[in-house]
Design a protein around this nucleic acid. Structure first.
Lengths: 204, 204
DNA sequence: CTGTACCGGTACTCGGCCGTATCGGTACAG
DNA sequence: CTGTACCGATACGGCCGAGTACCGGTACAG
């Protein structure tokens, strides 16, 4: 048990039924999401994804029955907790940190939401996957941050502006490209927090 | 040049080449925009529009060369000034009035933006028409209202929150359906103005 | 009354994409 | 070495929508 524990580069994959490794699956998911951000849901074709990943359309259809199910699976695999570890002990600083973090990946998520916002009206599973991947985790994390601020007494419980903070943040994030053509970066969002969110919460 | 200007009810149509009256044209535009809001840009077909207006596809293609040009024409015809006549003399009341007005037609415009937000990436003319019809007039009207408030001295010129008011308002408007599934109504928007916008502007 | 020009309807071509079927290659089991 | 099962490639069927062509009806001009 000392010399035979070979955790080298060639990991043993003998137990897998499908020959698609998780890494390979990840390539499929990344490719389809990237193409969706690029051209929109309707313009993305299974042929295109297969070609760009140098796999066969058969391979995709062996794993996922339809295109929306494939995209939904990609969204679920992409789901992860946002704003994780943001807990500075100060609500104002937490919100600035959220703004900085959001500025980093806002391009991708905003594009994805924009591109899929239309498709979800015709596929409930896709809509659920989209909400669970890109909406609910972020809202929940933001509300956790606000809740901790209230518990520390920085903002009075039931403050009128509390309910609107998530909508404000994500609203500004999503609508910026429509208004100016540019995506919201960290600097813009931090200034927004300072100029609007903090004053509205009474944090000067 | 004095008596021959016949502006009676039966307007002389001798000079019109097409037999499509402006009212009829309006029916086409209303139909296509309604179907776009309903099913999305890609799902709308020229056959569908022709059928729902009981005209022929040939008639549509005689007037407009392609589908995106047809939709762009519909958007341009739908362009009108928003928030017109809102000038109560008080910035706070003006903003509440904007919120009330926006609550009325926000459903339609939000749906239109959502449905076309994807299509505009592949057609520049469509993108321009969309901006000029649904974005720029509203932003300009809102900025006029803010400017008048500044000129009256209600808000100091260069106040940090001023730049973010349009993005906030339209952001909340557009993002509400994504977060909760409901469209923002007048009550929600007025409460948002009171809880966030006015405090951020220092209007208590 | 006659001609013209547009409208509505329909049939058609063309291209694209979803999803399926088939076939050769190949990695691994025994 | 042989069999099995999956992968990649390709071809195919079916469907649908953009845009075109044609044809009969009809309103209006002269």
């Amino acid at each position: 048990m000392t010399s035979q524990a070979a955790d080298g580069p060639e990991t043993v994959a003998a137990s897998r039924r499908s020959k698609i490794t998780p890494e390979r699956e990840r390539e499929f998911f990344d490719a389809v999401l990237e193409q969706i951000r690029e051209c929109g849901y309707d313009s993305v074709t299974m042929d295109g994804v297969a070609a760009s990943t140098r796999c066969s359309k058969s391979t995709l259809y062996r794993q996922w029955k339809t295109k929306p199910q494939f995209v939904a699976a990609a969204l679920r695999a992409n789901r992860r907790v946002r704003f994780v570890g943001i807990d500075t002990g100060s609500l104002a600083e937490d919100l600035r940190e959220v703004a900085r973090a959001a500025g980093d990946w806002s391009h991708k998520d905003t594009k994805t939401l924009q591109a899929l916002g239309q498709a979800v009206t015709s596929d409930e599973e896709l809509a659920k996957a989209l909400r669970e991947a890109l909406v609910e985790p972020e809202i929940a994390a933001l509300q956790d941050i606000l809740r901790r601020g209230v518990e520390r007494g920085e903002v009075p419980e039931g403050h009128a502006a509390l309910d609107y903070v998530p909508a404000m943040m994500f609203g500004v994030l999503r609508v910026r490209p429509v208004l100016t053509g540019e995506y919201a970066d960290a600097g813009y969002l931090v200034r927004f927090v300072e100029a609007v969110v903090l004053p509205a919460l009474g944090l000067t």
